[in-house]
Design a protein around this nucleic acid. Structure first.
Lengths: 333, 333
DNA sequence: AGAGTGTATGGAAACGATTACATGATCTCT
DNA sequence: AGAGATCATGTAATCGTTTCCATACACTCT
C-alpha cells in the first residue's frame, strides 16, 4: 500500500511537505497542495493511522467496556457513547465484559495496550488489580453507570433513589402493601444503591419488609425468574414484585405468566430500567427510566475533559418513574 | 510509560532479548526470561500495540460495520462476532452505520486507515465508491447479512425463502387469504429477497396480491406503523400483516393496538426476524428466525480464512419459521 | 545595498516495537 | 584437538508518520 514517501516522490516534494498537506498546515503553497493532493488520489493513498499514532502518542480512540450488549440498557448507552465520540472525532472500541471480571480485565488490558486515549468502564463486580493498577498509573478512566468505592475516578451515573421512592409511594397509594424486591448483586454499586433506596422508601411509607421479600439476583433473566418463583411460593406471597433491572423483570414476567397469574390483578410487576418495548407488553410495564443516552453522552464529555486536560467533575443524573399499567390503574400523576 | 528499552536497561539485557521474551521465543534462557519478566512487573510495562502493529503490519483487529446497534438482530450479530473474534485473539471495532451510506463510508474509511486486518460489512443500501475502491484494492472484506450485487466479495447470510413459504402456507392453512407485506428497501439485498419470496410463496398457494398489499418501509419502526395504518384503512383491509423486519413489526403492532384491534382475531401479525422478547408479547408473535449467532460466528471464520490466506467460501444458512399465536391457533406442526 | 522579516520547503531524528544478521560461548563428534 | 553445530544474546535497520531545525528565496524598509 502506498505510503507518504510514494506520494512525495510522485508529487516531486519532500515527505515533510506531504505531511503538512495531510494535516492541513497553512505553511504550504496553493499549487504544492494541489500537486500533492493529486498524487494522493492517483496512488489511492490512505494515511496509516498506526504510524501516526505511534508518532503523536494519540490514537483518537476511546474504549468502552460494558456489561452486556444484549442488555438494551447497555445497547442504548453504547450507541450514545459512539455518537458523541464520533462527533468529537474519536472512534470507540466496545468491549463486552459479559459481567465477568476476567473478561473485563481482558478488555482493559487489550485496550490499554492498544493505547486508547481514554477508557469508559461500567465496572463488573469488585475492583480487580488490573483496573486498580491502571487507574493508579494514571490511565484516563471514567466509570459509567456503576462506580467502584475506594478509587478516585470520576463517574457518570444515574441516581434512582428518588424514583424508587416515587414507585413505592405509587404502589402504596394503589393500596398494595406487600412488595418484594429482586435486587442486584451486592458487589455492584447500582445493586447496593437500589436495595438501600428500596428499604428507605418502604420505611418512609411505613411498610414492612419481611426478610424473604428481598433476594439478590445477578441482573440476568434466569435469576429473576427463579427468585420470582420463590416469592410466589411463599405462604404469604407478595402483591407486587419489583425487579432491579430489565432482564430480571423479564424473568419474573415469564414465571408469573407460566403460573397463569394475571398482572396486575393477581400480582403487580415493576422494573428498574425502562426499555423501548415495555410499552408493548400487556399490560405495559411500570418502570424506572434511566436517562441512558444522556449518560452516554455526558460520559464521553467527562472523559474528553480528562483526556484533554480540562477540569473534570462527576455527573449524577436522576432516574424517573414511568407509570404504566402493571401495578394497577386509576391514578393520575 | 515504560518502553521495551527501559525494561532492557532494568534487566541488563538488550531490547532484542526483551522482545523475544515478549513473543515467547524459545531462543532465550530460563534465567534471562525470569529476569526480564521481573523487570516488566517492576516497571508495570505494557507492550505498545501501536508500535508492534506498525512493525508487523498486523493489528489483530477486525472491523464490523452494522446497520444499527439498537436493532436486536444486529446486537446479537455483534455479540457473536465479538465472541468468535476474541476466541481467535482478535479485537473488534464496531461501527454503527445507522443505515446511512455516508456514515457507513465514514467507518470504512476510518477502519481502513486504522489498518484493521479484516472488515465485516452489513452493507447499507447501494454500493458506494469508497467500498468499491476498498474491495478492488484488495481489502479483506466479507459481507454479512446483506450482499451487494456486482462485487466479488464473499458473504455470509441467511436465506429466508423457505421460511417465508412455510409462513404463507401456515397462514393459508389457518384459513386466511388476504396477506399484506411491509417490505424492506429495494436497495437492500435482504429487502429484495424477502419481497420476491413473498410473491413466490403467495403464487404457490394460489393467493392473489393486490398492488396495495405490498409497500416498502425502511426497516425502522415508524415506517412500519405508517404502512400498517394505510393497510388498515383500505376498503378491504388485509387479514394478516407480515412485516419485513422486527422494528417494522413493532410499528405495525403499535398501530393495530392503537385502533383497539385484537390480534389475531381482527388482524394477524407476523414478522421477519425473531427477537427474544417476541415471546413475551400478548399474543406471542409468530416470526421467522434467522440464525444470528451462527451468522456472526461463521462470518468471522470466513473473514479469518481470507485474512490468513486460506480458501474462502460464502455461506448461506436457512432461516426458520417459529409459530406462536399471532396468526391464529389450532395448528400443530 | 544591506539588514531584517516572512514564507515555502527539505533533512533527519524521533516514536516503540520486531527481526535479520552477527558474535561469542559451549557442546559434540571424529 | 579442531571443525562444526547449537545456543543465547546483541547491534542496527526498519515500519510510516510528525515535527524541529535549517535553508533558500523573495520581500520590505531605511
Amino acid at each position: 500500500m502506498a505510503g507518504i514517501k510514494d506520494v512525495a516522490a510522485h508529487a516531486g516534494v519532500s515527505v515533510a511537505t506531504v505531511s503538512r498537506v495531510l494535516n492541513d498546515s497553512p505553511r504550504v503553497s496553493r499549487e504544492t497542495r494541489d500537486k500533492v493532493q493529486a498524487a494522493m488520489r492517483a496512488l489511492r493513498y490512505r494515511p496509516n493511522a498506526v504510524a501516526r499514532s505511534l508518532r503523536t502518542e494519540a490514537t483518537r480512540t476511546l474504549g468502552l467496556i460494558i456489561g452486556d450488549i444484549l442488555n438494551p440498557f447497555f445497547a442504548v448507552l453504547a450507541r450514545a457513547v459512539e455518537d458523541e465520540a464520533r462527533a468529537a472525532g474519536y472512534t470507540v472500541v466496545i468491549g463486552n465484559a459479559d459481567e465477568r471480571p476476567e473478561q473485563q480485565d481482558h478488555y482493559v488490558r487489550t485496550l490499554l495496550e492498544q493505547r486508547v486515549d481514554g477508557l469508559l468502564i461500567c465496572p463488573t463486580a469488585e475492583i480487580t488489580p488490573l483496573v486498580e493498577d491502571g487507574v493508579r498509573s494514571g490511565a484516563p478512566v471514567v466509570f459509567l453507570d456503576r462506580t467502584l468505592p475506594g478509587l478516585e475516578v470520576p463517574s457518570v451515573r444515574a441516581d434512582g433513589t428518588e424514583a424508587i421512592h416515587d414507585l413505592v409511594r405509587h404502589i402504596h397509594r394503589l393500596g398494595r402493601r406487600r412488595i418484594a424486591f429482586i435486587s442486584g448483586p451486592e458487589l455492584l454499586s447500582t445493586g447496593r444503591e437500589r436495595t438501600r433506596a428500596f428499604h428507605d422508601a418502604m420505611r418512609a411509607c411505613g411498610l414492612d419488609i419481611p426478610g424473604e421479600y428481598v433476594e439478590a439476583g445477578d441482573f440476568q433473566a434466569a435469576s429473576g425468574r427463579a427468585i420470582a418463583a420463590r416469592f410466589l411460593d411463599l405462604p404469604e406471597p407478595p402483591e407486587v414484585i419489583f425487579a432491579g433491572d430489565n432482564l430480571m423483570a423479564l424473568g419474573a414476567l415469564d414465571e408469573i405468566r407460566s403460573r397463569g397469574l394475571r398482572i396486575p390483578d393477581d400480582v403487580a410487576l415493576a422494573s428498574f430500567d425502562d426499555v423501548a418495548w415495555f410499552v408493548h407488553l400487556d399490560p405495559p410495564l411500570t418502570a424506572i427510566a434511566q436517562p441512558a443516552e444522556e449518560l452516554g453522552r455526558r460520559a464521553v464529555r467527562v472523559l474528553l475533559d480528562r483526556v484533554e486536560g480540562r477540569p473534570v467533575e462527576s455527573v449524577v443524573l436522576p432516574a424517573r418513574l414511568v407509570i404504566r399499567r402493571s401495578c394497577g390503574e386509576g391514578e393520575t400523576t
